[in-house]
Design a protein around this nucleic acid. Structure first.
Lengths: 238, 238
DNA sequence: CTCTTTTACGTACGTTGTACGAGAATAGAG
DNA sequence: CTCTATTCTCGTACAACGTACGTAAAAGAG
């Protein structure tokens, strides 16, 4: 499982071959088509046949640009990770590493909301591509004032990303549930029935108090901000 | 997508049918076979054919016990969630909600290390089954002293679970990388090459300082404990 | 031109989830 | 008992998937 990252990332596009038929497509075009498909219809719509149809190629032609589908997913992840680059370049470390890290978290969340398949695609371990490494570089620079050792800084970044992914997954599933009335209602009926069985008093009370709106209306990212702040403010440099 | 949770969880085993052939297998046996398969060979080894072979049934017989494979995954998740019940029952809330929550996090981590496919299986949204709801009930009871409203308590539990899942995924991927020497070496070569390109000074330094062992040897769960403590100590009741 | 290299992609295979329907088992009704 | 309704079993079959293989086409080198 997995492809040599050196061959995949470092030798691309590689020295132009001086002989042979010219490529009719490009890794970028294929990746963009796959991303567009995933954005529009979800990750499960990304099949080799559909991606090929999207770019107007035969199915097997894709394999000249990515050795297998898992690699194509890696390319997709790194491609959208590139959307973080301009913001990173525009916001160099300020010296306040907590604020910098929170800003990174918000950017990651926005990216994942734009590409809701990203948390799922990130779930399987992959070697970071150039854009992901640029993100990591930016985060490491932000963490410089902490004086932590390298492994810990990398771990913090991985944990932050996993945290944001988990939260966004929760956000979009909640949004999907409240958008599809039928499914949401069935789940509500089920939970109400469980709460009424007498064995789940805490759940019953939680559901009863869950409907209440907060006194002051809050922006949709408020819960995320609260959790993010808690996580990062809790980080210590000892 | 998805099955009515009411039918799935609440009417099982349901009133015995008074006529017709008697079931030759059971939902529990099938679920256990699937869990055993996932424990031994990973989630991707869980195919309807292999599960059927494991229980000695024909493939299509499984569909009398679960309407589709996704539902079987739900059954697997809830089944292993049942392993948390004894510990929950043995450890009622102490009044120190932070300590209680940390204990829950450690139990969840241990569960996920026993079933490394669990973080992945949890990633796709599903309605909680009875065992998951018992876990939630336990966590809500622990959170009672916070006086938070129901939605927030539920959100905290979901976020905690997502956090633990993310961390365990990281843990097992690290363990897998260091176990397979070939793959780990290829990645190390790649990262070293990137670090040497001059455009990633922070990464270069982080990798250089990453090899150093801590002065005092620490147990394997130490990083997890640190992150968990930071997350939970950061929670506030305002 | 021929030779060599590289890309394009039709065909085909193995594996997957599962729809369908025919047969077997069980229990009540007559 | 037989008849019939009901429920479970599971062989067969199909569409969709990732992709191995091989042939045809293109393009520079000689």
């Amino acid at each position: 499982m997995g492809v040599d990252p050196h061959r995949l990332w470092l030798s691309h596009p590689g020295p132009q071959p001086r002989r042979g038929r010219r490529p009719g497509y490009s890794r970028e075009a294929i990746t963009e088509a796959a991303v567009a498909l995933a954005d529009a219809e979800g990750l499960e719509a990304v099949t080799m046949r559909r991606v090929a149809a999207q770019v107007g190629a035969g199915v097997m032609s894709l394999y000249n640009y990515a050795p297998d589908k898992e690699t194509l997913l890696e390319l997709m992840v790194d491609h959208v990770s590139g959307e973080l680059l301009p913001a990173s370049a525009a916001a160099p470390p300020t010296g306040d590493w907590r604020a910098d890290l929170k800003a990174i978290g918000h950017l990651q969340r926005a990216l994942m909301l734009r590409h809701p398949w990203l948390p799922t695609a990130l779930a399987t371990r992959r070697t970071p591509g150039p854009n992901a490494l640029a993100s990591l570089e930016h985060a490491l620079a932000a963490l410089r004032p902490t004086g932590l050792d390298g492994a810990t800084k990398i771990e913090i970044f991985a944990q932050l990303t996993a945290f944001v992914a988990g939260h966004v997954r929760y956000e979009v599933s909640q949004a999907a549930a409240s958008r599809s009335a039928e499914r949401g209602a069935a789940e509500a009926r089920y939970l109400a029935a469980v709460a009424a069985d007498g064995h789940h008093p805490e759940l019953a009370e939680a559901l009863a108090t869950a409907g209440r709106r907060p006194l002051a209306p809050e922006p949709p990212e408020a819960p995320f901000t609260r959790f993010l702040n808690r996580l990062i403010d809790g980080l210590d440099t000892d």
